[in-house]
Amino acid sequence: MGKVNLTLLLAAVAIVIIIAIALIFPLERLGQLYSLLLIFGGLVALLLRSIFAKEVDRRIIFLFIFVAVAAPLLFPITFSEKPTAVVKAVFDRVESLPPGSTVLLSFDFDPAMAPEVQPMANAISRHCLKKGHKVIFMSLWATGQALLTQSLTNTILPEFPEKQDGIDYVNIGYKAGNEGVLNVIVSNFEKMFPTDVNSVPLGEIEIFDDIRSCRDLDFIVSFGGGLPGSKEWVLFVGDPGGVDVAAGVAAVVAPQLYPYYPAQLVGILGGVKGAAEYEFSLKETYPDLKDMDTPGLKMMGPQTLAHIVIISFIVIGNIIYFRGRRKEKGQ
């Protein structure tokens, strides 16, 4: 009798608490709260259980992974992404250039790489325009031009309606020739790109009034990491032309670029995490950008939670192992 009453009482209290929380927080907050409670509460429970050296069923692990990925997608959960030095270097460089500097952004990627690379390309484009730099957009990849146009028309330009084509930014598009293109533009843009994508001759575009070649640029960022990519920008433009180059690449490529940092590359953004860190810094520095689209940070929610879940399970597994060994010894 008493037992039933206690259960009922507890249930009633729980319902009251749930309703109270639901009244206080909006639905999204509630979802976030519940899912984080579910994940971390569950992990703590398993941790306590592990002290008795009880193995966890693999299906429980699967469930945790599923929730850790699904919950942040449903109720956007973002984490603080304190930028690492390599990312911060790029951000600081864009930030420290005086307004009106000329920056070249090259979209050297294809649709397969786009989910990882496009978010960071958008973030840096946004940052440059926000800061008042003049931006030259181009691409060394045939498939990159469409993605560049997509980024410009769908994401970046709508946010900066006051920016004028030819004065604040220009899109010179794609030219075939891979490293050959770089070899030419390091000494002359016009030779390789007689016009921009709208067939306006370079001579009539204001940005190019005092920009003849890559040597006149203040900063270059190459997005991609395939071939040709950041490495080629360093070898064919950065080093011979004495221009600072930074790279935004897919995660798998990033470690191969670290040997170039910091001597030949200002900084490196690697994968979705790099994009998230950049977006985070951007939001922090420019509060008015807080509503901007941040695909990097959004993707990092599930990623971070899943990593935390895996790390926790490694810890739990080790506790179980050592407790289990002690038990055996005791017997």
Partner: peptide, 16 residues
């Protein structure tokens, strides 16, 4: 691990 998670994110994104 990170790239493997991206695949799952893609699938769950489709479902939800």
């Amino acid at each position: 691990v990170m790239s493997r998670m991206s695949l799952l994110i893609g699938r769950i994104d489709y479902l939800l």
